[in-house]
Design a protein around this nucleic acid. Structure first.
Lengths: 232, 232
DNA sequence: CGTAAAGTTCTAACGCGTTATAAAGTTCTA
DNA sequence: TAGAACTTTATAACGCGTTAGAACTTTACG
């Protein structure tokens, strides 16, 4: 027979899955708790017993998806400085799998104050960025003067800010990737050694170019839709 | 006699001022629209006629305070690279005048999605950062390769991210100032010319040191409160 | 099995932001 | 000054997240 905790876990899973489904179906987190209770096959009081609030359910929905992926992030390997950029692209490729879903849930989760949201991105990840910084420094790719904690935090913040812009709809996924790399390239270049300087300068130049290109693209689309509007 | 628009403006002002008062008194934006209507001496429907939503009222409250200050930001002058850092400190000094108020309102305003919030920080300000970047480049303080738009956006994003952390209560105002300067110093250093490199390296070193110091401070406080807790 | 404990369900309710409606008031226009 | 145009008011209502309490069902244990 099912033990008490097993029953709870089952219900928790039902609720999280129902929430996931509703977000996918409606493309928003605006469904009511009555609707969620219906979809999950429980009463409206149960989600509150098991999670406490609607927000907490959103955290759980996100957690469930991110957990598995987190491990692949930990295991990322690449030569020299490139490991930073591979980690960035690995992160954005998670969003690429279900962009609307992640955008919607991240938006909801960060809207309530973003504390847990930030914790998700800065807590477990800070350790990773810090590790990469230390390895780069010890490998002679970053200055000995770099403070790993401060620098890693700044890297994370830069990444976070770009992700936020994507969540708010200011950037496409492709643009997010480029901006995040541009931000990393700049920061790393500021602490680069002669060994890594050339590569990083190239990356700054390359990403700058891509950013300019995406602007031209954007300008074209704006002009296009405007002329279409004035023509209609 | 009062014209129609004057009457509206008067009511708008009453409402914004009442909202300002309620935030200061209660230390939160959680007051009800019924309470706001009472405080402003209008019916509950009027704020909706004049602003549309509670959020819009919060934007208006913030706008009213920031407008005057914006001009002093435009007129900031300093030698060489230092103008960037003076602009940062000028910004944080606005918050210092009424920290609780700004934190509360910024939190509310950014929570609803942050679109207007970001617009406030990136829209009118982007032009300023861009101008400073161009001037620094033409003055030989930044590389000729720098793309003013991309770089200015990145500066703004870095600043924005730090402000967000203050709003969320992760940083003190003093820490916000130091982190913002650290972020600027790193980014500027990545594009520095030999002329500005020394100054920027010094700034990175100095701000890194301050960040470490504030961590020690923090650790002391945590230990202090913990030992106090276990002793009680 | 039988009974206590734990958890869920049903229902009603609270206060919230927001909106609709009709009545009352104010400003404009001629 | 009379009537039209526009706003505000008062009030009731809607659906929302959330909570309380009593009834009911499931699990745990002697």
């Amino acid at each position: 027979m099912a033990t008490r905790e097993e029953g709870k876990d089952r219900r928790r899973l039902d609720i999280v899955r129902a929430a996931h489904r509703l977000v996918q179906q409606t493309g928003s987190t605006g469904f009511s708790m009555r609707a969620l209770a219906d979809e999950a096959g429980v009463s409206v009081a149960t989600p509150y017993n098991l999670f406490g609030s609607k927000q907490a359910i959103m955290y759980a929905v996100l957690d469930a998806d991110i957990e598995a992926y987190q491990q692949s992030l930990e295991r990322v390997r690449a030569d020299g400085i490139d490991v930073f950029f591979k980690a960035v692209t690995l992160s954005t490729s998670l969003f690429a799998k279900e962009p609307e879903f992640y955008r919607t849930v991240l938006f909801a989760v960060y809207s309530d104050g973003g504390r847990e949201y930030r914790a998700m991105f800065s807590g477990p990840r800070h350790a990773m960025w810090r590790r990469l910084v230390v390895e780069a420094r010890d490998g002679g790719l970053l200055s000995q003067d770099v403070d790993p904690d401060a620098f890693a935090l700044q890297l994370g913040r830069s990444f976070f800010a770009s992700i936020l812009e994507w969540v708010l709809g200011e950037l496409t996924l492709k643009e997010l990737d480029v901006w995040a790399q541009y931000g990393f390239a700049l920061l790393l270049l500021s602490m680069a050694t002669p060994t890594s300087q050339t590569r990083l300068r190239d990356l700054v130049t390359a990403t700058q170019k891509q950013i300019r290109a995406s602007w031209r693209e954007r300008a074209k689309q704006v002009n296009g839709s405007e002329s279409r509007r004035s023509a209609g």
